[in-house]
Nucleic acid binder design. Structure first.
Lengths: 263, 263
DNA sequence: ATAACCGTTCCCCATAGCCAAACGCACGGT
DNA sequence: ACCGTGCGTTTGGCTATGGGGAACGGTTAT
């Protein structure tokens, strides 16, 4: 048996930050997301807050249009998409890599993605589906642990040593599937291999049945992020196929690097 | 001269909501977005808050990972993309229309989009660029006024009468370009035409040089949202071309409606 | 050197945010 | 028809919390 991953990591509701009310409001938003909608009592019970407190927060978030309300269910609103879409647009790598990711998906027929690192996690900025691509749970903005997937390992391998250690320290190496790297020494060896080879390969380490080939995008020694192609073990079991994909991924990464240089 | 549109509408910092701190925090986030990053003093001056207050809010938002910090500049973080991506995925219309929008963009070579209404504004959920598509400023999650663009008018035309009035009342009819409909009677006539024709046409009403053809997506009498194809006046000046596009848009809307019925 | 600017820290006060309890309303079982 | 139970809402009062102002430390420009 594998530990089921904590799909979303909300901030603990009480947190040593100057403005507690904001922390609580956002914790409530994240909990609503986790539950796909929730009501006052439900949330009050979950956090151990009084109903009136939760009610006040929800009212505030609805009045400011960050949440929507259907009857007694509160939902995450699209205003966050507005902020998120802006944040994505601010990421150079998104703008540079997007067209190349589309090409990569079209050429391979699989699913191609770009991701960057933020606060020690990988964040998917864009995904393009080829004709044979399989749908995964990962939607736009999904945040993944860096040790547990292709883009993650490609990113992790090219961060400064002390950041790698800090990240491993902060998040640990939670087990997603039975293939997830959970041993620290094994991880460091793997990262060394990634650096030598130039690509990171993910053998169902995050999702059962899903493999992935990823390559970092680097400019002047600075890591910008990583790109990847992923698909089912069914196809990715064939070494020659994976090899072809790996070359395409690497070639694309180089194209992106060149575009990045003269951005 | 046309009035320059208020690109982003932040909530006023002081707002009659139960939790003022949350309102302030989010107002600060929106202001950072508007300024493409900002510092403590700058924000304190803007809102008339003390520096220590702003500092507390920023510290909280960084600790909870909603903002990032580069030196003395605070930036909108990708955590909002995570929430936004989730909110988008929850929208049925996004899931249903996405593949059709890709096809529409490929067939026309122009830019195709899906949008839904939330709090009286149109929100773009997805955009696909064809080979000749022109890049516009509208990014993912952009919120537009409904009277001023194709998808907006297609949506507005199919809302219940009292909602239309409430929306016009709330937001008014700000002038984006010299072609924007700013007269209430003219708007109601236009909406009637949209209902008769089944498509809404935008002649540079929101952006100079950009035209657009849109159609609503309706299920069981309920409006789900709208889809559109937009392009430069250069090409969209040709009536036959626009007519072809209009038919494609309408056909696509019907396909989406059928898929929606059996979702 | 010195001034001007930034973010940060400190401390005190008013009030904003919190809780508990009571309230209104809609169901649903009896 | 009735009451019990579940929901969200409202109220009021206590106290912690978030606010402001002023002083501090660091960096940059003059």
């Amino acid at each position: 048996m594998t530990t089921q991953p904590p799909a979303f990591d909300a901030q603990p509701p009480e947190f040593d930050a100057p403005i507690k009310a904001t922390t609580r409001s956002m914790a409530i938003v994240e909990e609503i997301r986790k539950r796909d909608g929730a009501g006052v009592t439900e949330l009050a019970d979950h956090f151990g807050f009084s109903k009136s407190t939760v009610h006040d927060h929800l009212t505030t978030l609805v009045e400011t249009k960050y949440l929507t309300r259907n009857g007694d269910e509160y939902e995450v609103g699209l205003r966050f998409l507005s902020l998120g879409g802006y944040a994505r647009k601010q990421q150079e790598l998104y703008e540079i890599a997007k067209p190349e990711i589309d090409d990569l998906a079209a050429e391979t027929g699989e699913s191609a993605k770009v991701a960057v690192e933020e606060y020690g996690r990988g964040v998917y900025l864009y995904q393009s589906l080829g004709d044979n691509a399989i749908r995964t749970d990962s939607h736009l903005g999904t945040r993944v642990y860096l040790h547990s997937c292709g883009v993650g390992k490609a990113i992790l391998a090219h961060l400064p040593e002390e950041r790698i250690e800090a990240i491993v320290e902060e998040y640990g190496l939670p087990e997603w599937t039975k293939y997830t790297i959970t041993d620290e020494d094994a991880l460091y060896e793997e990262l060394e291999r990634v650096r030598e080879r130039g690509t990171a390969i993910d053998h169902e380490e995050r999702i059962r049945g899903l493999r992935c080939v990823a390559a970092p995008v680097i400019r002047n020694g600075d890591l910008l992020g990583a790109i990847s192609v992923s698909g089912p073990t069914k196809r990715f079991g064939d070494d020659a196929y994976v090899q072809d994909i790996a070359e395409l991924v690497q070639d694309t990464a180089r194209v992106v690097e060149i575009n990045a240089k003269y951005w």
